[in-house]
Design a protein around this nucleic acid. Structure first.
Lengths: 206, 206
DNA sequence: TACTATTGTGAGCAATAGCTCAGCTCTCTG
DNA sequence: CAGAGAGCTGAGCTATTGCTCACAATAGTA
């Protein structure tokens, strides 16, 4: 079995500007095509066509279809889409304010292309290498939330780890759903309700 | 464009017992194959092979691949997997007990084959006909939850509809995740935390 | 301008998918 | 037991996919 490196690494690195532009065009096209058709039906020919680039060019920068999706994912991660929790305000204040910051963060993170993100998470069959990277980032985020909870005096839950996991996932998916579907309920409403629910949960009995 | 009916309807209906058995074997095999390989990689040949049936037989009962998944979905719906909310105890009692019943219901519903359910919901490209059926069942469930909330004296939320949608989805996906992943957190723990969170949310301020 | 390295092209190959069909076997009925 | 229809088979057709490769065009350098 070829190593994950070889399977995802580009076969040629751009040296001239136009090459970099071509690479970008391919990635942009791939993002659109995957979001519109899904991963399986998002064919490489369709991507090349949309990028107004020949199929040959596509395969100069990406050794295979998986590599395109991998590049897309890495770009998202590098842009901080899943790591912005780093900058979360951990300073003491109202518990509600902290929770709201968490929810806002999730909303911001889904601004880009929620449909694409869905595809990337759910439909693709990633290499173990990539899966680990994603998982690591997820764990990191939950850990940060856990720390935030631990630091706040108003938090009273049975188990910090469980609570962190529960609220992180709940916020994530609810926002996810909200952004993917045609806005049936206003964003602010969902934000408020989520904040209410989680705050009351964290405050504990009484 | 052929009508959705024609695209999903079987081309031959079983008249003898052995035919019915064949049909069942195919469906059972499809459930396994889809759950294991996903929809795209779950090829019809693989399904036929696993069912120990020739590929020709498969196409006698299902006009195309989509129809197999559709049949699987319809069977789930008919079995009441998504409609058991009908039987939800709406009689008055502790709010917490009602919420717990809701969560338990979700847990029960995911008992069958969570992996398959995931595939069916997320990976397949359904016909509009089927999508409508699913959506209808979803709306029905949310409606029932809404009624339950409306009837309970302890519930104090800004908007019943929003609350119903929020908690239905939150319970659904959290349980979903719990059952799909290798049980990192015990079921009972998640159940308790979910019940706590939702109950406190519904009880409202104070 | 001439030479080289980089970048871009697209017809078409190999693999594989969904699916068909001509003909077989089995079950039922009289 | 014989005939008919229901059920079953699987080689292989057709379409499509991911991907290659021989070549053409462009950019950089002298």
């Amino acid at each position: 079995m070829p190593s994950a490196d070889r399977r995802l690494q580009p076969r040629r690195t751009p040296r001239q500007v136009r090459a970099e532009l071509t690479r970008e065009r391919i990635l942009a096209a791939a993002a659109h095509v995957f979001a519109e058709h899904g991963y399986a039906a998002g064919t490489t020919n369709r991507i090349a066509e949309r990028a107004r680039v020949s199929i040959g060019s596509l395969y100069q920068y990406f050794p295979n279809k998986d590599a395109i999706l991998a590049a897309l994912l890495i770009r998202h991660i590098d842009r901080g889409v899943w790591t912005r929790a780093d900058e979360l305000d951990l300073s003491p204040g109202t518990l509600e304010a902290a929770v709201r910051a968490l929810v806002r963060d999730a909303i911001d993170n889904h601004g880009d292309d929620p449909q694409l993100l869905r595809i990337m998470i759910e439909e693709a069959s990633f290499s173990q290498e990539l899966l680990d990277t994603i998982d690591q980032h997820g764990k990191l985020r939950v850990g940060q939330v856990r720390d935030l909870l631990a630091r706040h005096p108003d938090v009273h839950v049975r188990d910090l780890g469980t609570a962190a996991e529960l609220i992180t996932f709940t916020v994530e998916t609810n926002i996810h759903k909200l952004m993917a579907a045609p806005r049936a309920i206003p964003v602010e409403t969902v934000e408020n309700e989520l904040v209410d629910m989680i705050t009351r949960y964290l405050r504990g009995p009484r």
